[in-house]
């Protein structure tokens, strides 16, 4: 029995929305199915290692390739490891044409993420829960001159590929307002104006705020436990280092309020003298001698 929704109401049957999918970028340095098969079994063993994850093949680092690339065998191999290959990226024109002939489209990766000339495949987009809230437009390498972007705006600046392997520090010099979010991917974040309540600043490295920090600050967003948060006026709603966070429901403790402060992870849990709560976050007043 079919049910005609369109007749019942004004529901649009087709609706368009932009979206971002987590896709693995797999850097292949050989296109010989035999070599790949043995490399694959060393890495993943036999059988499906992945869980039907989407993947694109990054061919920017292929050194040699046979006259006739046997794409179907390569796809078969990757499928056997549990990958769904969408297409190829960053290939030269010969390989692009050859892949296209086998039904593999050439995809433009948003911020070009080839693996560094070294280890295993990298995830194209981190799936760290802390990053899930970051708008797709911000999941790019921040160039030092990228303006703060609220989640409402698409970012216009094109990321500079050369910064990917050497991410710079993102410097923000205007106030961050409620609802605005800034993420320094792969580097430090330096903010020279107030971070207001409801604003969120995130960095894979350290966060420096040379003004009142009244919003949320998450340093070491991809697990860097050495990351720190430094501010000249501490009044945060939440601080987090490598996913270990602390909120201030009763307000910031009086001895820390509006003080210059450093937040970092302690080796041992710190017991708060006032509340008796254990935390691995250590919040200290910065003393400049």
């Amino acid at each position: 029995m079919t049910h005609d929704i369109a007749k019942d109401s004004d529901i649009a049957l087709i609706e368009f929305k932009g979206t971002t999918l987590p896709v693995l970028a797999i850097t292949l340095r050989s296109l010989d199915p035999k070599e790949l098969t043995s490399a694959g079994s060393t890495l993943f063993g036999e059988g499906a290692f992945f869980d039907d994850d989407l993947a694109v093949l990054d061919l920017s680092q292929v050194i040699t390739w046979p006259e006739q690339v046997e794409w179907s065998l390569i796809i078969q191999l990757l499928t056997s490891h549990g990958l769904k290959v969408l297409g190829i990226t960053r290939a030269n024109s010969t390989l692009t044409a050859s892949a296209a002939a086998s039904g593999l489209p050439s995809l433009a990766l948003s911020a070009g993420r080839s693996a560094k000339p070294a280890p295993a495949p990298k995830k194209a987009i981190a799936t760290d829960p802390a990053l899930d809230k970051i708008p797709a437009s911000l999941r790019k390498a921040p160039a030092p001159d990228v303006a703060p972007v609220s989640p409402d705006t698409p970012e216009k600046a094109e990321p500079d590929e050369t910064l990917l392997d050497n991410p710079g520090t993102l410097v923000i010099d205007r106030p961050l307002r409620s609802g605005q979010q800034v993420y320094a991917r792969g580097g430090d974040l330096v903010i020279l104006a107030a971070v207001n309540p409801g604003a969120e600043v995130i960095a894979d490295g350290n966060i420096h705020v040379y003004a009142p920090l009244r919003g949320r600050a998450l340093a070491g967003a991809r697990g860097n436990a050495q990351a720190r948060i430094l501010t000249t006026v501490f009044a945060a709603e939440l601080v987090s280092i490598a996913g270990i966070y602390r909120t201030f429901e009763e307000g910031v403790p009086a001895k820390l309020a509006n003080q210059p402060v450093q937040v970092r992870l302690a080796q041992e849990p710190v017991v708060s003298p006032s509340t008796g709560q254990k935390s691995r976050l250590e919040i200290n007043i910065l003393r400049v001698d």
Partner: peptide, 12 residues
């Protein structure tokens, strides 16, 4: 807080 939010939207 809401004024802060609308200022952000204005800037965006």
């Amino acid at each position: 807080r809401d004024s802060d939010r609308i200022l952000g939207i204005l800037q965006a």
